[in-house]
Amino acid sequence: MTLIKRASVFILTVFVLTLIAGSPAQAQKAPEFSNDLMMDNKTYVYLIAEKLEYRSISGVNPLMWELQGYVGKDLNKFWFKSHGEALTTESEAEMEFQGLYSRAITPYFDLQAGIRYDLAYEGGGNKSRGLAVLGLQGMAPYFFHVDSGMFVSEDGDISASLEAEYDLLFTQRLIGQPVIETSVALQDVPEWGVGSGFNDIGLGFRLRYELAREFAPYIGMNWERKLGETADMARAAGGHVSNLSLLGGIRMWF
């Protein structure tokens, strides 16, 4: 009887294992190893025109842009950023370009470092400068998009900027976007119209409609005010200290 019991147990075990091996859930062959399964291997390319807009400011009516994009993997990327404005009524413009190495330090934030180049022209003259950049970009709690940076110019002048925005979904396609911007400097830089302390503050709201996820016309309004010594420099040069403008533009990404 002992031999028969052992044989029965063996046959039953073989039968159960055969059923398990034949189950569709268990019989799938494991995929062969591939680097595509590993993090930080796939290369991504992204470009967005966050702002391409016209603003109605009496006497100047500038065209504004804010572009940025990257190429790279999950952890390491190269970022390109540019923003600026060109006046439609005068031969005057200011623009900024940044090239940055970006490293993901949390699931939501990247630490960035690189260089920035500023270029401005007015009438027949122009000026430029180079700066080192250390920045932090990502998504703060409650889904606020944050882009901040600290800058050191070739002359040793130190400044910083912060921009935060938030998407309010009224529908799946109609989206409101409040924006706040500010900047600060440690030294006076008169040739660039910058005073020490807080330089300015900007508040804006844009209402866009996504005809496609990649293409959205928008309208909105924007208020800006120069502060402290920067405002004093603007007054002395006969410029605007504060302005409120209506705007219209297009947001698109690739």
Rank of each mutant, 00 (worst) to 15 (best):
S128W: 10
Q177H: 05
V152L: 14
V179Y: 03
S159N: 03
R173E: 09
E122M: 09
L168V: 15
E163W: 04
F143Q: 08
I175D: 01
A132W: 10
D167F: 11
E165I: 04
M139I: 12
S128I: 02
F151L: 13
F170P: 13
Y121D: 04
A164I: 13
L174W: 10
H145N: 11
Q177T: 15
Y142R: 05
V133R: 07
M150Q: 01
G176K: 09
D167A: 14
K127P: 05
P141L: 01
Q177S: 13
Q172C: 08
S159Q: 02
P178V: 13
E163T: 14
Y142M: 05
F144W: 07
V146S: 10
L169I: 00
G135R: 00
M150G: 13
G123F: 04
V152I: 15
P178A: 13
I175R: 06
V146H: 04
G149D: 02
S128N: 15
E163N: 09
V179M: 11
E163Y: 07
G124P: 00
G130F: 14
K127M: 08
Q177N: 14
Q177G: 11
S128D: 14
A140M: 05
L131K: 13
L168M: 14
V146D: 02
D155K: 14
S128P: 02
G149C: 03
E122P: 01
G130Q: 07
G138W: 06
Y142I: 04
S148K: 09
R173D: 12
G130V: 13
P141S: 05
A132V: 12
L174H: 11
L162K: 06
E154K: 13
N126R: 07
Y142K: 03
Y166C: 10
V179P: 03
S161T: 09
E154V: 15
I175S: 07
G124S: 11
L162P: 02
R129E: 08
R173G: 11
L136V: 15
D147H: 06
A164H: 01
N126Y: 13
G135S: 05
G125P: 00
G138I: 06
V179Q: 12
P141N: 00
A160Q: 04
E165T: 15
L134D: 01
D147P: 03
M150V: 15
P141T: 03
S153G: 08
A140T: 04
G149H: 08
K127V: 03
